[in-house]
Design a protein around this nucleic acid. Structure first.
Lengths: 198, 198
DNA sequence: AATAATTTTAATCAGATGATTAAATATTGA
DNA sequence: TCAATATTTAATCATCTGATTAAAATTATT
């Protein structure tokens, strides 16, 4: 059952790499989590680094797909598109809360430029309807598209980073957090519009 | 020259820990960067972990101080206070760009709650004028203070995380980035106000 | 069933790494 | 000055860890 073993390893690697990062992860931990002999990691994936690259590109592609998923749906207004984008992100992040931090760490790792070129998601984003519509909207209102993209992503991702702080500062539990996040689904599109109309 | 050596080690540790994190950093690299014998790390700081804790709490305190610096200056309106806060942050982050990611990783590490309690910065924030003024403003306009804090921090910190992405997406160089950041100094206070008036 | 190919296992290697030690050197204080 | 103290060094330890290997077990092919 080669397929099964390989997937068990990947699932374990995904889980541990995403929470602990490359250096802090030991291949033995992955093997144990997968319930599999250590040597099989090197049998199916050549090295720890290769396995990590696999998880990295998989995660990055998935992250990109979450954007693309709504980005090209035709007949959507910019408002509807942003609304869906936020909801897609939040659904994904609630399901897998380690993703935001993992992605940011990937993106800020030293060799990212060549890596992004290698998996080829660079040109894609600018060709999405989401980007085109936002760029057009910014043009019309004399706004910098870069600032708006940063705002959109920043507002979306920030609560997931801030979670542990909110926990100590407001003694929030998981339920409070989820409620706040769900409020935020409705608010971000309104805020983005307000910012655009500034 | 004990003082000098200890500080050389700390400076090297600061530099490497902040960019590579705990696990990826080798004590030998710190020693070399400091131009110092490896055994001196254990002589001045008991262990790698102790040295790391030192850098962690130092960085966290510094990060907090950047808030507190403007947070209690009396006779400031909420607008002026936010304006200064953003400028303080941006000055600090431009000077030491590794800080935002390092802080987020600290805050999202498993043992953070006990660590924050240990260095005792928990109660401080809520007692600042910044917090009180924001809380009051939110109350008046029927807004959730948590959402507003997330917005403020998210908008401030996002560009520093997004930097490598902007680099590949818009072929930005350092100068473009700095220009964009400086624009943002003026914009964030306006955006926050717009959001509050939503 | 017999053989070949694939997958899994246990054992081990080689190098990396955090830490320690004992001796050497430098500094301080009487 | 000289003994006590503090600092620095080179060598080494013990453990961890990624990777390999050769043999065993399993599965596929004829």
């Amino acid at each position: 059952m080669s397929e099964k073993t390989e997937e068990k390893i990947k699932a374990a690697a995904r889980k541990i790499f995403r929470t602990k990062g490359f250096a802090a992860t030991r291949t033995r931990d992955i093997a144990e989590e997968a319930g599999v002999n250590l040597a099989l990691l090197n049998y199916y994936f050549k090295s720890k680094q290769d396995l990590y690259n696999e998880i990295m590109s998989e995660t990055l592609k998935q992250f990109a797909a979450t954007i693309m998923g709504t980005a090209n749906n035709p007949d959507l207004s910019i408002e509807e598109r942003i609304d869906r984008l936020i909801n897609n992100y939040f659904d994904k992040f609630i399901e897998e809360p380690e993703i935001p931090l993992f992605v940011i760490n990937i993106v800020n790792s030293p060799d990212i430029e060549s890596f992004i070129n290698r998996i080829g998601i660079k040109g894609l984003f600018k060709s999405t309807l989401l980007y085109k519509q936002m760029a057009e909207g910014c043009e019309k209102k004399d706004k910098d598209i870069r600032q708006m993209l940063i705002n959109l992503m920043g507002l979306a991702v920030a609560p997931f980073f801030a979670k542990p702080i909110l926990r100590v500062l407001f003694e929030e539990d998981q339920e409070d957090f989820t409620r706040m996040i769900n409020e935020r689904r409705k608010l971000i599109p309104i805020w983005i519009k307000a910012i655009l109309d500034t």
